[in-house]
């Protein structure tokens, strides 16, 4: 990953052949009760993964986490965690084959209810809002300066698939995915939360320590 957030000074560091370079400051992560932490492991579509980074986003009426999963095969996925529900998302490079999304990338609007066909699936715009990056940690594919703002549009689909499109001055990125249950990921090394026991189904084979 080209970027990392220093856990001690919150500095955003870019790794390159020339070494490490400080490119800014990430905001302090606000406290939340997420069961995920850097070092949480699991399995997805038959491949192991490890959580290596997180970006926390907020908007006027809430906040959510996007956890970066480093897959055993060297690829990456995102685990989005909002309102107690989880989605696995993967960047979708051919998103601008859909004319509505290409229009959005070019600065157009995506009103609520807009229908978008992508990969043979029908998605409907269910939410559109301005979001702000309120913190980051670990290794990340992009820099996460404090106060970074994006226009985010969420879609729903009949069978539990999901699509999320985000746009800023630098362009548009689309993430395609599906809702999952935490237990389906066979998680290990979940975060301990005071006053709660990790349910049997989520205990997995706990690896001592993980990356912590």
């Amino acid at each position: 990953m080209p970027y990392a957030v220093c856990p001690y000074c919150r500095g955003v560091i870019r790794w390159s052949s020339a070494g490490a370079e400080s490119v800014g400051q990430a905001a302090e992560l606000p406290f939340d009760v997420s069961p995920i932490q850097i070092g949480t492991g699991g399995a997805l579509d038959g491949a192991r993964f490890s959580v290596v980074g997180r970006v926390r986003w907020a908007w006027a009426d809430g906040g959510w986490n996007e956890w970066l999963l480093a897959m055993a095969d060297g690829t990456h996925r995102w685990l989005a965690e909002a309102m107690g529900q989880f989605q696995i998302l993967e960047e979708c490079p051919q998103a601008d084959t859909a004319p509505e999304l290409a229009g959005f990338a070019a600065g157009g609007e995506l009103p609520l209810g807009t229908l978008v066909t992508l990969n043979g699936l029908y998605f409907v715009v269910s939410d559109s809002k301005i979001i702000t990056c309120v913190g980051a940690e670990g290794d990340l594919p992009f820099a996460t300066p404090a106060g970074w703002k994006m226009h985010s549009v969420d879609f729903r689909e009949g069978e539990g698939r999901s699509l999320s499109v985000q746009r800023d001055e630098g362009g548009m990125a689309a993430y395609l995915g599906r809702y999952v249950e935490l237990a389906d990921l066979n998680p290990t090394n979940l975060r301990a939360i005071e006053g709660w026991d990790i349910p049997e189904a989520l205990r997995g084979s706990v690896r001592a320590g993980g990356r912590a």
């Binding site: 001690y8 406290f31 850097i38 070092g39 940690e137 975060r191 301990a192 005071e194 912590a212």
Partner: peptide, 11 residues
């Protein structure tokens, strides 16, 4: 990691 410790409710 910073946040790896046990989490308490916020008040």
């Amino acid at each position: 990691m910073v946040n790896a410790s046990s989490a308490k409710p916020r008040s």
